[in-house]
Design a protein around this nucleic acid. Structure first.
Length: 252
DNA sequence: ATCCTACCCCGCAAGAGGGA
DNA sequence: TCCCTCTTGCGGGGTAGGAT
């Protein structure tokens, strides 16, 4: 099939080769087509996509990932090839992981028409997007239980199915979302976060990511990504919602 | 057989972004 | 400014695995 390596004019991470990056979500082109069975069951690729999105990469553009991956593979380029940039190597590794996860995927891709490859990518993308939507929907409600101190209640009350009133608009969620290094107890800081005078950049970790919600300015890695809240979210998604605070009721 | 739970999909609405 | 496309969030509901 035709390679996107020499045809695209997008210049992002694959600028040197004229490729766009699969790890940044771009607009999709077409609606889904070619479902396995529209009424009763999904193409297994959708199911694989759900797992891929949850366990490998939640926000990639599968169409670009697959197109770039096929191009590299057909040129017999190794995933550690020094001609690739770090981001290209990472992206290629994600592609290889996709091949590893789905039985016969490599052979299927290599013998498929360009149109078929597009369909395959769309089915996987559908699974990724669907799983993410389901997970965020589930966590949105459950997280109220996780952030409510044992034996107490939130004041003011936060409805389980409403997101407005959360964020910096609520004392509890604001304290958890406050960037590490800032003091939520400081009223001036709090006011600036609420009214947007302090813009939180994407590389500023919120305090809820840290173990015991404690940030060590001397050692910013200390306790990062080890909070109980993250463990709850992980269990909610990867084992089952009921496994968060008890023995799982269902064993499916 | 029935129930509980988790998985998954569908249709709709809202919002963002791009092009005319 | 309007229109179109696309993405995301959401509510609702069907399906299936496992326990009872």
């Amino acid at each position: 099939m035709a390679s996107q390596r020499s045809t695209t004019s997008q210049a992002t991470t694959g600028e040197k080769r004229g490729r766009s990056s699969a790890l940044e979500m771009g607009p999709r082109k077409k609606p889904f087509v070619g479902c396995y069975n529209a009424r009763t069951s999904q193409d297994p690729l959708v199911h694989h996509g759900r797992h891929f999105g949850r366990s490998v990469h939640a926000f990639c553009n599968v169409q670009t990932l697959v197109t770039n991956g096929i191009a590299l593979m057909s040129e017999d380029i190794d995933v550690n090839d020094e001609s690739l940039t770090a981001i290209e190597r990472k992206e290629y590794g994600v592609f290889k992981e996709l091949l590893r996860m789905i039985p016969s995927m490599e052979a299927r891709l290599m013998e498929s028409s360009e149109e078929m490859v597009t369909t395959i990518a769309e089915l996987i993308q559908k699974g990724i997007n669907g799983a993410r939507a389901d997970d965020t929907k589930g966590v949105k409600s459950a997280i109220i239980d996780w952030i409510t101190p044992k034996g107490q209640s939130l004041n003011p009350h936060i409805p389980r199915n409403v997101k407005s009133g959360r964020g910096f608009n609520h004392g509890r969620t604001g304290a958890l979302l406050c960037p590490a290094g800032l003091d939520w107890a400081n009223m001036e800081t709090r006011t600036k976060l609420v009214n947007g005078q302090i813009q939180v950049a994407g590389d500023q970790w919120p305090i809820f990511l840290y173990a015991n919600y404690t940030y060590d300015a001397e050692d910013p890695w200390n306790g990062l990504l080890r909070s109980g809240l993250l463990v709850s979210a992980f269990k909610h998604i990867f084992t089952s919602p009921s496994s968060v605070d008890q023995e799982p009721k269902a064993t499916r």
